[in-house]
Simulated assay, not measured.
Amino acid sequence: MKTAIKKYWFLFVMVLCNLIIWTYDPEIGKTALAFSGKNFINFRFILTPVFICIGLMDVWVEREKMIRIMGANSGVKGITVAILSGTITAVPIYVLLPVAGVLLKKGCRISNVVLFLCTSASIRIPLLLFEISSLGISFTLMRFCLNLFAVFAIAFIIEGLLSDKDRKEIYGNAEKL
């Protein structure tokens, strides 16, 4: 029981908060519980297919092939693949973290993984289309160029700041996944 509490302490705190709200104001408690339930169901429906795809990627894609595509010596090809794969994602950001873990496990360069994450968060195609329709093409192009510059800066600064010990630790933690 103690290990379950340690592992899921945040869930227990949230359930306790919902119960306190429910006892204080049952109407708000009912709304909060319904909202929590909808979010949990949404979370499960999104994560299940993503984890299946991640498992298939982990099994089907060979490490050597992934190292050639996005590894340390992949150069422009790895950067291009990271950015393109990041722009076509249309999932919540919390789903991208397991994908990043598998990419690291497969030997992808850290800057390419950061490029993938940052592009997925800020330069998605659906987001660009929405911006074009509501804010105009000139604003969208300016934001796209500035974001692209920021994404490159973030990725290569992070990789440059990491020591060899840090890199080994990151790749070692990814291997445990």
Rank of each mutant, 00 (worst) to 15 (best):
K2L: 12
T3Y: 12
T3H: 10
A4V: 15
A4E: 10
I5P: 00
W9F: 13
F10L: 13
L11Y: 11
M14I: 15
V15Q: 10
N18K: 09
L19M: 14
W22L: 05
T23H: 11
T23W: 06
Y24S: 15
D25A: 04
D25L: 01
P26I: 06
G29C: 01
G29F: 00
K30A: 12
K30P: 01
K30I: 03
T31K: 14
A32W: 10
L33K: 09
L33R: 10
L33S: 15
S36P: 01
K38T: 14
K38H: 12
N39W: 01
N42K: 14
F43Y: 12
R44F: 05
I46N: 00
T48H: 00
P49E: 00
V50N: 00
I52D: 00
C53F: 08
G55Q: 02
G55T: 05
D58H: 07
V59N: 05
V61E: 02
E62P: 07
E62M: 07
K65H: 14
K65M: 15
M66A: 10
I67G: 03
G71D: 07
A72E: 08
N73F: 02
S74K: 02
S74W: 00
G75Y: 03
V76S: 09
G78A: 04
I79S: 06
T80E: 04
T80W: 04
S85P: 08
S85L: 14
G86Y: 02
T87G: 08
I88R: 05
I88T: 07
I88N: 08
T89C: 10
T89W: 00
A90T: 07
A90I: 06
P92W: 00
V95F: 02
L96Q: 09
L96W: 04
L96N: 07
L97N: 11
L97W: 11
P98C: 14
V99E: 05
A100K: 03
A100I: 09
V102R: 03
V102S: 05
K105S: 06
K105A: 08
R109S: 04
S111H: 05
S111Q: 02
N112C: 13
V113A: 00
L115C: 03
L115T: 03
F116E: 04
F116H: 02
L117T: 13
L117H: 11
C118S: 13
T119D: 01
T119C: 04
A121M: 12
A121C: 10
A121W: 00
R124L: 13
L128N: 07
L128W: 03
L129Y: 13
F130Q: 06
F130L: 13
E131P: 11
E131V: 09
I132D: 10
I132W: 08
I132S: 09
S134W: 06
G136N: 06
I137P: 02
I137G: 01
S138Y: 07
S138W: 01
T140Q: 04
T140C: 13
L141K: 01
M142F: 08
M142Y: 07
R143M: 07
F144T: 13
F144E: 13
C145S: 15
L146Q: 07
L148F: 15
A150E: 12
V151C: 06
V151A: 08
A155P: 07
I157H: 06
I157L: 14
E159N: 08
E159S: 02
L162Q: 06
L162H: 05
S163Y: 01
K165C: 03
K165V: 01
R167D: 07
R167M: 10
K168A: 12
K168T: 07
Y171G: 02
L177Y: 11
L177P: 02
